[in-house]
Amino acid sequence: MTAQPTGIATYNFAYLDDQTKRMIRRAILKGIAIPGYQVPFASREMPMPYGWGTGGVQVTASIIGPDDVLKVIDQGADDTTNAVSIRAFFKKVAKVAVTTETAKATIIQSRHRIPEHPLTAAQVLVFQVPIPEPLRFLEPRETETRKMHALEEYGLMHVKLYEDIARHGRIATTYAYPVKVEGRYVMDPSPTPKFDNPKMHCSPALQLFGAGREKRIYAVPPFTDVVSLDFEDHPFEVQTFDQPCALCGAENVYLDEVILDDHGGHMFVCSDTDHCEKRRGDSTSPSWGGRAEGAGGSGLATTPATSTPALRADPPHEGEGKEAE
């Protein structure tokens, strides 16, 4: 075979070979069939380090088609290293269209957030998961945690919440907050803030979870019950914020604290950059139409015009997002 003129002929569409994609699709289908169940899969080495979304990338690579429009967010932002790199990766190896606009995407790969804009049945949300096993920090044996899932022995999950209340007077777990899926499997929603947990419940979009290092895939099919665990006298609550977003004035959204200077200056702004820009665009510039980029575009997405981006670019790392116990 001769090399094709583009110079990337040695790559398959979306990087992975077809056998691997089939294997991963089978795992995804099984995950969809058993909501919340962690399906082992033969995770491949990807051209990026573990902790940078290798699980999510493999899931995305296995489901993406030439007509898909991909959005990648990292803790809500489209413009941080992780998001930019993965978006560029797929633009290169799959030549798909990419976007930063939630409503225009067909596949959204996310590290630790669910977009504020409601998702639709035509969309798939792919989560990057560092540690898929919600029982892991209380029970180190994989043989035992599998058995606990199989036998639906989930008392231990409440032990963790009990410890929270005993130590802090309330359930202090704010992210990776355990949920029960379709009344059966307890699942780690990945280190998303618990603010996003209610969005997972009965979402019209398919939600897929990939953990590359841990070699697990799991799924929440559309319109599936996702219930956050809690106590009767300490019910599940999402975070609330005292003030609206300092940039767009949005309320009832998840805010990030942004440090402005070395003198304690800070402000709270939308974690979802697309949502924030859209709102600001709506009010100041009605002609705002999103920034969907064409396939084979000029490479990296342009940095959006906020004052905040670089401050949120915290690099992912091994075992990120969980408290050490």
């Binding site: 022995e153 008392g155 409440h158 106590f231 009767e232 006298d233 300490h234």
Partner: peptide, 14 residues
Amino acid sequence: VGERLMAVGDRHYG
């Protein structure tokens, strides 16, 4: 001490 209670479905912290 509480683990067994939670394991059999007690969901009242107090």
